[in-house]
Structures are given as C-alpha cells and as structure tokens.
Amino acid sequence: MAFLAPALLFIGVFLLFPFIWVLIISFTDTALTGPSAANPSFVGLENYYRLFNASRWMRAGEFGNALRNTLFFVLGSAILGQAPLGLAIALAFHRKKGLVRELVFSVATMAWILPDVAVAFAWIAFLDRDFGTLNAVLGAFGAKAIDWYFEKPLVAITLFNIWRGTAFSMLLFSAALGNIPPSYWETAEVAGANAWQRFRDIILPLILPHFLTDLILITLWTFNTFTPYLITGGGPFFRSETVSMYTYRVAFKFLEFGRGAAVAVVMMAINLVLATGYLLSLRRGRAWR
C-alpha cells in the first residue's frame, strides 16, 4: 500500500480532484465575467436542464444538434473510414516489402503526426471553393466546383479526419498481421486456401481483439477531437458543430464555466459508456475464443 501511495496521490491530484471539481461547478453558475463571476451560486440541475431542454433540443446550436453531428462524424470518419481503410492498407502490403510500401506508410504516418494548425491551414486551402486543389482536380474532370465548407461542412471534416487518423489503424493492423506465425500461411498454402478463405479463417479470428482495441481508441479520439474546429469553426450555422466544439463554445463564448462543466460531465459519461461497451465486448470476444 505504501508502495502505491505516490501513484495514488498522483491520480488523486491530477485525475480525481479535477473530475470532482468539474462535477461540483456543473451545478453552479460559475463564470469568468458578469455578476455571477463575483458570487457564484448553486443552481441545481439548471445547466443540465438547458442542455436537454426538449422543446429546442435539436435546434441548430443546441446540444442535440451537436450530438447528431458527432454521431455522423464518428461513424463516418472512425468506424467506416479509418478502421476499414487502415485494415485495407495493412492487408495490401502484408508480407510485402519495397518502395511503394515505405512511401504509402510514410505519407499516411506524416498525415497523422503533423501539427494541428498547419494541417488545418492546408485543408482550408485544399477545400476552398474558388482556389482549392480538390475543386481544381474535380474541375479538370469536368465536375462542378463544390463549396465544401458551406454546403458539405460535415462531410468535409469527416474526410479530413479519415485522412488525419488512418495511420493509427494502419500501423496497428500491420503490427497485428506481422504477429501471425508464418507457419499458418504455409499450412494454408498446402491446404490450397484462397485469399478469402485465408482472410476469413486465419486473419479475422486472429486480429479481432486488435480490431476492438482499435475501435475503442479511434472512437474515443474522434469523439473528443477539436481540430476540425480550426477548419470550419463548427459552421456554417452549426452544421458541423460536434460535441467538443459545443463544449468549447458554451464554456468560452461567455466564459460560463458552470454550463461548460455540465456539458463536460455529459461528455465524460458518454465516453465512459462507449469505453465500457467496447471493453465488455472485448472480454466476451476472448471468452468466446
């Protein structure tokens, strides 16, 4: 126990205390400016009520709208985008060496490790209606210019996030594939298994736990990411506002930390539910094996 004390103290100070503190101020009208900044008072569940006020929950700029956008964003960019794409790249270069592999892996990893602000600027330029590279390329094929940020802001940040985060899934799957003993492939070859059979009977069962780990991590990351704010600012008219942007806007627009804390608590709860769900399925997956 004494041996654990420093670690427990660390967790207590840097994790438990802030968490309890956020929980406490979410029941107050704490703010940085205005009358309630000098004398914050207890407001009960009002902050939560405003978050879930049914009469306007789905209105643009409200929490429900942000939650729906986030759902689309996470489903589209992490679950349907990054994970399958990362797996596809890993499989395509499985047991292969050479320049193309190095090139693809380097480029994908680069997209993952570049600083947020630089990347955001690049994407603003890339998707610009009048001068953007993407529209120029589309235009060369005779397609009409698309006003990405104005007409398809949510699609734009979803594409961005696929580009941004695929490297992680790719590296994880490629490591997982590398761990499969070579004797399996030899056996499969002798038995005359085709590519699909190899995938279904060898690869899939062996990488399934990794797949779940990957999904846990990228879902949580995508749910909490803030970088798209640098590109669309959540707009136009809140059409690309995700929950993390909503939290920022509520907390910092008028520096109302009480309301911001309430959103943060709800976000934490959602994260917890997601993580628990995945962990349980991971455990069940192991038991099944």
Binding site: L32, A37, A38
Partner: peptide, 8 residues
C-alpha cells in the same frame, strides 16, 4: 459592465 461585475 460585464468585467466590472466580475471584479476584473
């Protein structure tokens, strides 16, 4: 007014 109310 907003900053004054907060004592800033």
């Amino acid at each position: 007014p907003e900053f004054d109310a907060a004592g800033l």
